[in-house]
């Protein structure tokens, strides 16, 4: 069987590319870490050799102005046709942390057909970088009705770590927020251990409605602030909890879902 191919797009300041690569490889995919310069310089259809696109975490171009904005602009101005086509074809796309910020700021989330920025990830309410583990809740309605291909086979509440200074999810207006809810796009919310509404620091950034991760309506594009690639093994969990086999963590399921979807 043909192996699933993943393109991890990196730029100056990308720094979660190796562990993201490892996570996909563990799930049986073949992974290339490709610098945006070489994607720009290479053949126009190079991106279509791949099944999955991943935008990993980091501080693209230093994130000195605002997280993800410089890379979002660069992709939008130089790669927009290719990347939009890739997304609209239904290929799985994931943006983790800085990658999520990039997806939102170039407008691939929440609505890639619109392809405009209608939401943002703003400064944490605590005004500081937060590196900690959180509980993430997947609502029953989401489990049953969401199209998200990335979040299948997960229990009601999982743990993942976050590490960001700008993770407060905000939509441009109430209408957009309502449609995100209505269309089952809010796949992860920060929660307490029992799935209840959390206060700081369990909600580490002050996101509206505790939003931690969203997908598009079709369910192939997924962006989240937490880092699934940092919870591949039970060993990576602070209390070494595991999801199965005494070995793996919940993060692995997320990558496995996308690889299985392509297969």
């Amino acid at each position: 069987m043909k192996k699933v191919k993943v393109l991890i797009l990196r730029a100056a300041g990308t720094n979660c590319d190796y562990e993201t690569q490892f996570a996909f490889e563990l799930c049986g995919a073949v992974v290339d870490r490709v610098h945006i310069n070489s994607l720009l310089a290479g053949r126009k259809d190079k991106i279509f050799e791949y099944d999955i696109l991943a935008l990993p975490g980091g501080f693209s171009y230093g994130d000195d102005i605002a997280s993800g904005r410089v890379l979002a602009n660069e992709i939008k101005n130089k790669l927009s046709d290719r990347i939009r086509k890739f997304v609209l074809r239904g290929n799985p796309v994931i943006g983790i942390c800085n990658g999520f910020q990039v997806l939102v700021k170039m407008g691939l989330l929440p609505d890639p057909e619109l392809f405009e920025q209608i939401a943002t990830l703003s400064y944490n309410s605590s005004n500081k970088f937060e590196c900690r583990w959180v509980y993430l809740k997947i609502e029953k309605k989401i489990k049953n009705e969401s199209n998200c291909i990335w979040t299948k086979n997960l229990p009601n509440v999982i743990n993942l770590p976050v590490a960001h200074g700008e993770g407060k999810f905000i939509t441009k207006n109430q209408k957009i927020l309502k449609s995100l809810n209505r269309n089952n796009q809010i796949v992860f919310r920060y929660s307490t251990k029992d799935g209840n509404k959390p206060a700081y620091p369990l909600c580490p950034n002050g996101s509206i409605q505790q939003i931690a991760g969203i997908c598009n309506i079709k369910g192939n594009v997924f962006g989240l602030m937490p880092h699934p690639e940092r919870y591949i093994f039970a060993l990576q969990h602070p209390a070494r909890e595991c999801c199965a086999d005494k070995k793996y963590g919940w993060g692995k399921i997320i990558f496995q879902n996308a690889v299985d979807f392509v297969e």
Partner: peptide
């Protein structure tokens, strides 16, 4: 917690 002490996983 201001340091990303888990990057690289």
């Amino acid at each position: 917690r201001q340091y990303d002490h888990e990057v690289q996983g």
